[in-house]
Design a protein around this nucleic acid. Structure first.
Ligand code: MN
Ligand code: MN
Ligand code: MN
Ligand code: MN
Lengths: 220, 220
DNA sequence: ACAATTTTTTAGTTTTGTCTAAAATTTATT
DNA sequence: AATAAATTTTAGACAAAACTAAAAAATTGT
């Protein structure tokens, strides 16, 4: 597998919503910052290798083989992210770009030994689950703050938007993975939400509420 | 810089004997397992970027700029080798192939933090020095066992041949970096050398003697 | 010195992944 | 249902990095 093929497979996986549903050529092109005609060429090639299911004008979906390739790349990406944060003291908003490169290093031994060295982590620094060698991972029952009713309580376990800008914003506002939040009030007018934290209660905008995942502890 | 350009620069550096002397097209082709015509094409390209000095039919040498690029790649290669051995428990004969990939990861922050994490090592697992950020490194005064007279004593600090086969041979014969050896006898007939180790004295063939470096402690 | 050999370069292809422009197909609108 | 708009594919071209075959230059042997 070439680096480029791997990037296409990963993009198709993410756009198909972990659901192996059909993805549009234009969507892939936009995500990969390339042209639709280039996507068509590559999709044909991936189809030849039976990594994707493809019929002209019908969109593309990952085959089971392709899904396993995607999960193996995602496993590597997330393990490297854990390494960068836990061992090299990167902050969680810096690791993604470096992991984009490291995920393409080819060595099964390397990734096994890295996994062991990190103590077999289950999630990456953004709260996303790390698949095992066979592509199996536990999809946690997490919900966006914006989807929860007043009174819900849970542990912050992930972000929807993992851009450096958003992650920096969270750091500045002392919101971190592992924090426990309770929904105190939802403002109908603008969708902003008041939540309680250890250090008191704060109000977060609707935009923030739609980008933070809680793992529900208690739903009164 | 592309991955391929980096590999050419590194090869030219090694073939020029760390000496910026002129290297033959055929030598590069052989080392890189490619054809001389491909080398000529690439050398022209590197010359355009003033990474090498090149005149038709005159061979090629690294410019100062090219030398610094080479040292930066070698720095990365050797730091990753230390990481693989010290942190991930690779054995020293397995690390080279993986480091060949890792050396191309582009992130200054990454390599700085890796260096710190490893405790700023001075040499890699094969005894080769690690250049600092500015390309400065201490060239140790090491000599091949085959070049030393009877009575010499020194610490084993490096290998000339770093193939997996040779490194495995050393492990099997309980020869490791850091061991102290003394030259007891040199057999004129076949060039084999008897050396004393902690565990007794052993005889090594001429071929081994020309591939092990000692840092001289005492030369009687 | 000059012919033979070796080394190096040039010229012309190939493969991978990209692009633009145009054609084909599907989807949306009246 | 017909037309307009958007999406997708095809056709043809290009840059990077490799190759083969042939030409040019340098080196070696007599
Ligand atoms: Mn990431
Ligand atoms: Mn992540
Ligand atoms: Mn090495
Ligand atoms: Mn080494």
């Amino acid at each position: 597998m070439t680096l480029s093929e791997e990037d296409y497979i990963k993009t198709i996986y993410h756009l198909s919503d972990f659901n192996s549903k059909s993805v549009a050529t234009n969507a892939i092109a936009e995500q990969m910052k390339t042209k639709p005609s280039s996507v068509t060429d590559m999709v044909k090639k991936l189809s030849e290798k039976s990594l994707v299911n493809y019929k002209k004008y019908q969109g593309v979906s990952l085959s089971e083989k392709g899904r396993l390739v995607a999960l193996s790349i995602i496993r590597k990406h997330r393990l490297w992210e854990v390494f960068l944060v836990d061992k090299l003291n990167f902050s969680w908003d810096e690791v993604h770009v470096v992991a984009e490169q490291l995920e393409h290093i080819k060595s099964d031994t390397l990734i096994d030994k890295l996994d062991a060295h990190l103590g077999y982590p289950k999630v990456d620094p953004h709260g996303d689950p790390i698949p095992n060698k066979d592509g199996v991972f536990t999809k946690s029952v997490k919900k966006l703050i914006s989807e929860l009713p007043v009174g819900s309580q849970g542990v912050c376990v992930g972000v929807n938007d993992s851009s450096a800008a958003f992650l920096k914003f969270l750091d500045k506002n002392k919101i971190a993975l592992g924090d426990t939040f309770k929904i105190l009030e939802i403002e109908e007018f603008d969708g902003s939400v008041t939540i309680s934290t250890r250090s008191g209660s704060i109000s977060i905008s609707k935009q923030i509420a739609t980008n933070l995942f809680l793992e529900i502890v208690d739903e009164e």
